[in-house]
């Protein structure tokens, strides 16, 4: 199954999740997602998702000047973001459990 289709629905949750412990700039978030096993995630999708979560008021951002290369815009979870993470996380877990149960005998 094409994971990119699956990712579309859960990328919000994944991005919120990797920002829970530590703030990160875009590339940072991308690396953490890939290290976490989501290889198929597209660069542009991550940046688009960050913009959407930011515009939805779930993230705050700040710019950190860097001595070499361009400035980096860091994103961090704010209170609504944390609430959304908990909420979406629960939805996902019950969804995943249900799917696991369905697959239980076959897979």
């Amino acid at each position: 199954m094409d994971t990119s289709q699956l990712l579309k629905g859960v990328l919000d949750l994944a991005v919120l999740a990797v920002l829970r412990k530590e703030d990160g700039y875009g590339y940072d978030v991308l690396r953490r997602l890939r290290q976490g096993g989501l290889d198929g995630v597209g660069d542009a999708s991550v940046y688009g998702t960050l913009r959407r979560l930011y515009n939805a008021g779930l993230l705050t951002s700040y710019v950190v000047p860097s001595e070499e290369g361009p400035h980096r815009k860091y994103y961090s979870l704010n209170e609504p973001g944390r609430e959304r993470l908990v909420e979406s996380g629960q939805t996902w877990k019950s969804f995943a459990r249900a799917l696991d149960d369905l697959l239980g005998e076959g897979a």
Binding site: Y25, G26, Y27, L30, D43, A44, Y47, L50, R51, V63, G69, P70, H71, R72, K73
Partner: peptide, 19 residues
């Protein structure tokens, strides 16, 4: 303004990848 925001981080990303 939105384009500027996007270019701020996605643009930086492209530069970083290129580097």
């Amino acid at each position: 303004a939105e384009v500027a925001e996007i270019m701020d981080d996605a643009g930086a990303h492209v530069v970083e990848v290129a580097e």
